[in-house]
Simulated scan of single mutants.
Amino acid sequence: MPGTHGKSARGADLPLIETDQPPGSEATRYDDTLPRDPESAGLARQMVTKAMAAWDLADLSADARLVMSELVTNTLDHAQGSCIRVHVTRIQDYGVRIAVDDRDHTRPEPRRTDWTQERGRGLYLVDAMSAVWGVDPMPWGKRVWAELHNETRKRQHAVASWLLSAARDKRRAVKEWDTDGMALLQCGTLFCAIRLPVPLVEAASPRTDPATVDAFLAEALYGAPVIRCNTGQWFYALVSPSAAERWTAPYTECLGPGYDIGVPRPDLTEHPGRTASYWAVPMSGPGALGSAAAVSQLTAYARFRQAQEEAS
């Protein structure tokens, strides 16, 4: 039950932990107190399914249900008391924490078992399927928990937090990302942006369809982050702020201090059409910028290819 407060009808030998969700807000945590019997594993799985659907984390749903089932089953087999308390907590927009409370202070440990046996493998499965798991001692017993992460969303969340450091107004930038998919960020602090005409880049690419050009850029620039702005027909390669001081490649420009550029939300990584911007090469992590030298080599090769075509 989201936002559980007060006394549960299913049992009262564990303290209830109130969530911090104000009435009417979107739940970021689901909690319930269940009887310590085999049927509770199914009830806990149902709560996980509901939470995953509400949080648009369907890709983690199957693993989260299995982890919850294993944690509950482990508690039923080894803990004490007449009830258990289960929690499902959202981690930002990229993951979930599954937790089970009981009144036993004994720390559970994975134990070696014959993999042909039907039981005894619970914590090994939890360890294999979770990003991290652990045991927190509590005054009344313990909490066993595990986190599952969507690694792509986790990276995008970290990249977004880093990029927002270049916003003049972070709240406004977040709102722009939410409503328009693009926010204005300052150049010259965290990064500079080398502006490349799309026809120039297409001249170097084997083909000119967006998917091929994007793959070519990722290889030619060694994974450097690149934004494609379809409105103005430009590519923007993000590089170190120091590049603005020495950039000289013709037909291009390095945007440094004093310039703002429209930066797409980090999850916009597919060509959306002719009028929107997207990440032709997504940023691989916070601060993972490209090499200005590699961009310079690309532009030199592109000009060479253009000269060849003009001469033929």
Rank of each mutant, 00 (worst) to 15 (best):
P210W: 11
A44V: 10
R228C: 09
L163I: 01
P264C: 08
T73H: 14
L164N: 06
L221K: 06
R90W: 06
R274H: 08
V132N: 03
P15E: 06
D77S: 10
P38Y: 11
D13N: 03
A294P: 01
E176G: 03
K142T: 11
D169N: 14
P266I: 03
A58G: 04
P22D: 13
T179R: 13
H105C: 00
A244F: 09
L200F: 05
A211L: 09
V144D: 12
P225S: 12
W55K: 00
V88I: 09
G134N: 11
A276E: 13
A276T: 05
G258V: 08
A220C: 12
V48C: 04
D209R: 13
S291D: 07
G258F: 10
Y30G: 15
H105G: 10
F304A: 13
T208P: 09
W177R: 04
G285P: 04
G134F: 04
E109F: 02
A146K: 09
E309K: 09
L16W: 06
P108T: 03
Q297Y: 05
D178P: 05
M47P: 09
P250C: 10
A288D: 11
S25Q: 15
V96L: 07
D180F: 15
L298D: 02
A183D: 03
A237P: 01
A244T: 00
A99E: 02
A244I: 01
G287I: 05
D77I: 00
V144S: 12
A58M: 01
D214K: 03
A51V: 00
R107G: 02
G273S: 05
D178L: 13
M68K: 01
I194V: 14
G188I: 11
A79M: 03
D59T: 05
A211I: 13
H157W: 12
Q306L: 12
V174E: 15
T75W: 06
D169V: 04
A280Q: 11
C254L: 01
G256I: 06
A211N: 12
G6N: 08
V86K: 07
P264I: 08
V100K: 02
A160N: 09
N74F: 01
R90H: 12
G285C: 05
G95V: 01
T179V: 14
D127Q: 08
P199Q: 05
E219M: 02
R29H: 14
R153E: 12
A243C: 02
P197Q: 04
V159Q: 10
T49F: 01
S165Q: 15
A280R: 04
R155T: 15
D104M: 08
G3E: 10
R274T: 13
A131F: 10
D260A: 14
G181H: 02
S240A: 11
S161P: 00
A243P: 01
E118W: 02
A12C: 07
Q46W: 08
L34Q: 08
A203I: 11
P206G: 06
D56M: 00
Y94E: 02
A243Y: 00
R97Y: 07
M129L: 15
W145N: 07
A173T: 08
Q233V: 02
P272D: 07
M47A: 14
R112D: 05
A99V: 03
I227C: 07
L123W: 03
